[in-house]
Simulated scan of single mutants.
Amino acid sequence: MPTNVLKLALALLIASLALFSIGAFAHGVDDSTRAFLEQNQGVQFIPFMYIGAKHMITGYDHLLFLVGVIFFLYRSKDVLLYVTMFTIGHSTTLLFGVLSDIQVNAYLIDAIIGFSVIYKGFDNLGGFKRCFNWQPNTKIAVLVFGLFHGFGLATKLQEFHLLPDGLLTNLIAFNIGVELGQFAALAFILIIINAWRHSPSFQRFSTLTNTLLMSTGVMLMGYQLTGYFVN
């Protein structure tokens, strides 16, 4: 694939993720989905799986964090390991948060999710080693932030006061959908990044990309904190 095409494709990808992460689209629910969730009764496995997949694909704050996580991972087993750590984290708090009805302020959780994007961009730029001469355990960090991302998903579902009838099965279906959406998005992102790594400009543009990740995280975090104080 030509170098210029790779640069353009990745630039468009990052710009699109940055744009949509700032605003309601990051956790938005369309009218048809809202109506379904508010009126749902009993087990609806396929619809909940579809909603989970759609929510992850449009949950650009989650994807921005994952872009940072996999950006410098070259081996498939490392990608699998880190994505699994993230999955364990968000699956645990998604199920636990909804089933135990743990109430967490959605703005604060989403602000922490925004901070996770800042953290990963800063980490990828070598900020911890340069500024603090210290490197956090990246696996633990991904797991911990995964827990917060799961609470972000849980708070969205809790808004609809889902009925207990079939709730566990529906939550499992939703979580499977989230994983499928995550897999689809990451597959596309990995294709672009892996092809781009063959370009001599990879290091230079990796700095730009991770700087954009940090900037987007700052905007997203500020957006959510503003919503918290205003509301």
Rank of each mutant, 00 (worst) to 15 (best):
L190H: 02
L168T: 13
L143N: 07
G146V: 05
G146H: 06
L171R: 06
I193P: 04
L167G: 01
F145H: 06
I191N: 06
A173Y: 08
G166C: 09
A185W: 00
A184D: 00
H149V: 04
I193G: 03
R197P: 01
F174N: 03
E159G: 15
G177N: 02
V178K: 00
F160L: 09
N175F: 05
L168E: 11
F160Q: 08
P164C: 10
F174D: 03
R197D: 00
P164T: 08
I193H: 01
T169D: 08
L153G: 05
F151Q: 05
Q182T: 05
E159S: 13
L157Y: 12
Q182I: 03
L153I: 11
A154C: 11
F160I: 10
F145C: 00
Q158Y: 10
Q182Y: 06
R197E: 05
Q182P: 03
G177P: 03
G166E: 05
A154G: 09
N175P: 07
L147S: 07
F148D: 01
H161G: 10
F183T: 11
N170G: 08
H149D: 05
F145D: 00
V144N: 06
L180C: 12
L180N: 03
H198M: 13
A154L: 09
F188H: 01
A195R: 13
A173K: 09
V144H: 05
T155P: 06
L190Q: 04
G150T: 07
L190S: 05
G150C: 09
F188T: 12
